Amino acid sequence: MSQFRSLPKDAVIYRALLRKQWVDEDTGRVKADAYFLRALESGLSVNLATVCSPEQCAGLFRKCYGIASLEVGDVRKIGLDVEQDSANHANIIGLPHREDYLAEAERLAGLLAKQSHIVWQPK
């Protein structure tokens, strides 16, 4: 049981875009690649917008190519959830690994990418 309350549906979360190929240079949109779980992850790392600005979130990483925002309610609408695990951090949970369920992992990553908006990019 988490020590944190369930996040409200209008809570905003930030996904740090840590690879250049996660951003479509032609459209300026987030690619689905930004929303795939890595092998040993159980959830997709996100930061809480109530605790850090997009710039502060980007500053947590050595190299960051953008910050994408999502609303928790939109994540829940596609059957996933966001679980807070520290004061400024949460995980998108319920995503399958590509190795286990490729089609479902691609479908959900695509839906998350469509819902997200880039709110910060380096100059």
Rank of each mutant, 00 (worst) to 15 (best):
S42M: 10
P54Q: 10
A32R: 07
A105E: 05
I78N: 05
M1S: 13
K20Y: 08
V46H: 01
L70K: 04
V119L: 08
I118S: 11
H97A: 12
I118H: 08
A103Q: 12
L111K: 10
L80Q: 04
A16V: 13
I67R: 01
L80P: 02
E25G: 12
D24I: 03
P122V: 07
D74Q: 15
G79E: 08
K123L: 11
A11L: 13
G43W: 00
A90M: 09
A90W: 02
P96G: 07
L17N: 07
S6Y: 00
P96R: 10
E41W: 05
V51W: 03
Q21H: 09
L60H: 14
C57A: 13
D10A: 12
D10R: 15
H117Q: 14
G79H: 14
E71V: 12
E25H: 11
E106T: 07
R62K: 15
D10Y: 09
K123E: 10
K20A: 14
A11N: 08
N91F: 03
S86A: 13
S69W: 03
K63Q: 05
S6F: 00
R38W: 05
W22S: 08
Q21G: 10
E55C: 11
M1A: 13
L48W: 02
S45K: 06
G110D: 03
A39M: 11
L102P: 04
H97D: 07
L112A: 04
L7N: 02
L18G: 07
H97F: 10
D24T: 01
V119H: 03
E106R: 14
L112N: 02
Y14M: 11
A109Q: 06
E83P: 00
G73D: 07
H89D: 01
V46F: 00
A87D: 11
H89I: 08
E83K: 09
F61T: 15
P8M: 09
G59A: 13
W22C: 10
T50R: 14
S116K: 09
L70F: 04
Q56H: 07
G110M: 09
L40N: 14
Y14E: 06
V75K: 01
G43Q: 06
Q121V: 04
Q115R: 12
V30H: 07
A109M: 10
E71P: 01
S6Q: 12
Q115P: 00
K20G: 09
A90Q: 06
K114F: 00
D85N: 12
H117N: 12
V23Q: 05
A103H: 11
I67F: 01
G66L: 07
Y101N: 15
S116T: 11
A32P: 01
M1I: 12
P8V: 02
K63F: 00
W22Y: 13
D26C: 04
L40R: 14
S86F: 03
L80K: 08
L80C: 07
E104Y: 01
A103G: 07
E99W: 04
L17F: 01
L80V: 09
V72C: 03
F61D: 01
G43N: 07
L44I: 09
L102H: 11
W22M: 12
G94W: 00
L44K: 04
F61Y: 15
W120P: 04
D85K: 05
K31Q: 04
D74Y: 11
S53T: 15
G79M: 15
A68L: 10
R62S: 14
L17K: 04
A109K: 08
P54R: 11
A90G: 10
Q21W: 08
R62I: 13
P8R: 15
D85R: 05
C57H: 05
